[in-house]
C-alpha cells in the first residue's frame, strides 16, 4: 500500500467517524423519544414524595399520576419486560426509592416473541440493560450489537424517529409531563375510525405473536422481576389495560389468552408479594370514544381508568386490612 493511499484512506475513515459522531450525538440530543425518556428519568430523580405506586409497561400503560396520588408512571413506548426488569433493578438498587406497589402491565401483547424482540431506543436503554447478560439469556450474540448501536450509531435505521422529532419540534412548544404521565393522545378518536376491524387487525398483527405467545426470555425476566419485588418487599399488581372490542377479538384469534394467563398466574402466584390481576381489558368494549386507536386509551379514557383503578386499589387495601385484622384476632 502506498503512503499516499494509506493517508487518504485513513483520512476518509476519519471523516466517516467524525460525521458518525456528529450524527450520533445530534440524534441523541434531538430524538423526541430520547427527550421524553430523559425527562421522565429527570422527573423520577426529582420525585421526593412517598412513592406508593410505580407503574411500568409500554404505551398501553396510561395511568394518570394526577389522579392516582403518590404515583409515578415510568412506562415508556414499546417497553418490554426485559427493559422493565433492568429499569426496576436500577430503581430499587441504586436510587434509594422503593415503591409500595408495582403496577405492572400484563396485556396479551406483553408476553410474546414480537415484544421480546423489539429493541428500540437503544441509545436510551444502554444505561440500564446488561446486554451481556441478556445475550446469554437469549442465547443470541447479535444482541451485543444493540449496545454498539445505542452507544455509537443511535441514528442508524431511525429516520422515522427523526421525521417524528421534527414534527414534534414544530407542534410541541413544551412537554407537559407530570410524574411520568403525559396527556397527549387527543388528536384522533377511534370512534371516528371508518374501518375499525381492519385497523384493529393491522395493529394486532404488528404486536402479537401466536406461535410464541409466551417468549422464554420474557418468562425469565418476568420471573426475575417478581423475585426482585419479593426481595425488596414491593407488592405487585398486574394490570390488563382496556382494549377496543375489535382489537380484543383480533388478538384472541392470535394468542390463546386462557393458556397464557394460566402460565402467568402460575409464575406470579409463587410470590407472596403478588396481589392479583386487575383485568380491565373488556371494561370499555362499548365505548370506542374512550380510545385513541384500537389498543390505546385517549386522555378521557385514561382518566376514567385511573379513577377506576384508584377505587379498586382502595378496595384491595381495605380487604387486606380486614384480612390482617382477622389474622390478628
Amino acid at each position: 500500500m502506498s503512503r499516499k493511499f494509506a493517508i487518504r484512506f485513513a483520512l476518509f475513515v476519519g471523516l466517516i467517524l467524525l460525521i458518525n459522531t456528529i450524527l450520533d450525538q445530534s440524534f441523541k440530543a434531538f430524538s423526541v423519544h430520547n427527550i421524553l425518556n430523559e425527562k421522565m428519568d429527570e422527573q423520577f430523580t426529582e420525585y421526593n414524595d412517598t412513592l406508593k405506586f410505580l407503574a411500568l409497561g409500554n404505551s398501553h400503560n396510561c395511568i394518570n399520576t394526577h389522579i392516582l396520588d403518590k404515583s409515578f408512571n415510568y412506562g415508556s413506548p414499546s417497553e418490554n419486560y426485559i427493559q422493565s426488569y433492568y429499569k426496576l433493578k436500577h430503581i430499587l438498587e441504586t436510587t434509594g426509592k422503593k415503591p409500595e406497589y408495582l403496577l405492572l402491565q400484563s396485556d396479551l401483547s406483553s408476553y410474546g416473541e414480537k415484544i421480546s424482540n423489539r429493541y428500540e431506543y437503544n441509545s436510551y436503554w444502554i444505561k440500564y440493560i446488561d446486554y451481556i447478560e441478556l445475550a446469554k439469556v437469549k442465547d443470541d450474540k447479535s444482541i451485543l450489537t444493540k449496545w454498539i448501536e445505542g452507544k455509537f450509531f443511535s441514528y442508524a435505521g431511525n429516520y422515522k424517529d427523526i421525521q417524528l422529532s421534527i414534527v414534534y419540534r414544530i407542534k410541541m412548544k413544551n412537554i407537559e409531563m407530570y410524574n411520568g404521565y403525559r396527556p397527549h393522545r387527543d388528536y384522533k378518536n377511534f370512534a371516528d375510525e371508518p374501518n375499525k376491524r381492519k385497523t384493529a387487525w393491522n395493529k394486532a398483527q404488528l404486536i402479537l405473536s401466536g406461535d410464541v405467545y409466551f417468549d422464554e426470555a420474557i418468562k425469565h425476566y418476568f420471573d426475575k422481576m417478581m423475585q426482585l419485588c419479593q426481595e425488596h418487599n414491593v407488592k405487585v399488581i398486574l394490570i390488563r389495560y382496556p382494549l377496543t372490542r375489535e382489537f380484543d377479538e383480533e388478538e384472541k384469534k392470535i394468542v390463546p389468552a386462557d393458556k397464557l394467563y394460566t402460565e402467568v398466574e402460575n409464575i406470579a402466584s409463587r410470590y407472596n408479594i403478588y396481589q392479583g390481576t386487575f383485568d380491565y381489558h373488556n371494561l370499555y368494549f362499548d365505548n370506542p370514544e374512550y380510545f385513541f386507536d384500537p389498543d390505546h386509551l385517549n386522555i378521557q379514557g385514561s382518566d376514567l381508568l385511573t379513577q377506576r383503578l384508584k377505587k379498586d386499589i382502595e378496595a384491595l387495601e381495605s380487604n387486606l386490612a380486614e384480612k390482617n385484622i382477622l389474622a390478628l384476632d
Binding site: I16, L23, Y155, A156, G157, Y159
Partner: peptide, 13 residues
C-alpha cells in the same frame, strides 16, 4: 460518505 450515511440512516437494520 453521503451514501454511507444514507444507507445507515434509511437501512432496515
Amino acid at each position: 460518505s453521503g451514501f454511507v450515511f444514507f444507507v445507515l440512516l434509511f437501512g432496515v437494520l
